[in-house]
């Protein structure tokens, strides 16, 4: 997915840029800036609507804080393993890069599995997507986050494949770092969601 115009002369191994940051990294930062607003909009919607329960359960009647804490912790740990993957990539250690990328993906998958469990359990207890404003905005917000994690896992798996086959154009370490940026961002967003949605009482 990395894409660069080698526009500055012959030295295309490390293209010269005005800011010194590579185009890809700058692009990823800017993209994440935009994502902040996306989640900002979704979180605002949830905050406006979380107390509006004309039917079905209210937030504190179904939230399972111990479970969500554990799953949040699992996701946090995946940020740690992502850091290990990036550091391995900087050391040009393909084996451990792949290992930590895989572990990160697995932890991510566990988190998504937990979210599927949580959604199913809530649904059984009477909170459907269309039950109330709380239901619609809860599923939309956490669902969007879940989709982001899933996309991240897919990118991690693709990255493992590409590292194995040496198919990464340009710098391997930087590509891992880019995916890492994305992954950390998704984690941070979850911390915000966990705090605002689950911990702060409705």
């Amino acid at each position: 997915m990395a894409d660069t115009a080698l526009a500055h002369g012959a030295d295309h191994g490390a293209p010269h840029t005005t800011t010194g940051l590579s185009n890809n990294k700058l692009g990823m930062w800017i993209f994440l800036g935009s994502e902040c607003l996306l989640f900002g909009g979704l979180i605002s919607t949830y905050m406006l609507y979380k107390g509006r329960v004309s039917a079905g359960p209210q937030p504190d009647q179904i939230y399972d804080i111990p479970f969500t804490s554990v799953s949040s912790f699992v996701l946090l740990m995946s940020s740690l393993t992502m850091v290990l993957a990036v550091s391995a990539a900087h050391r040009r250690d393909d084996r451990n890069t792949n290992l930590w990328l895989t572990v990160t993906a697995l932890l991510g998958a566990t988190f998504v599995g937990g979210q599927v469990y949580e959604f199913t359990a809530f649904y059984r207890e009477g909170l459907g997507f269309t039950t109330s404003l709380f239901g619609s905005s809860f599923y939309t917000l956490t669902g969007f986050h879940g989709v982001h994690v899933t996309v991240g896992i897919i990118m991690l798996m693709a990255l493992v494949g590409m590292v194995r086959r040496n198919r990464i154009p340009g710098s391997k370490a930087e590509t891992v770092e880019l995916i890492g940026l994305y992954w950390h961002f998704v984690d941070i967003v979850w911390i915000v969601i966990f705090t605002l949605v689950y911990l702060i009482p409705s």
């Binding site: 919607t45 406006l48 609507y49 509006r52 329960v53 004309s54 039917a55 997507f129 269309t130 039950t131 109330s132 404003l133 239901g135 619609s136 905005s137 939309t140």
Partner: peptide, 14 residues
């Protein structure tokens, strides 16, 4: 498309 309630005033939406 999915009958969410975001703008359904009868459900309390704003």
């Amino acid at each position: 498309s999915f009958d969410a309630t975001f703008f359904d005033v009868a459900a309390g939406a704003d």
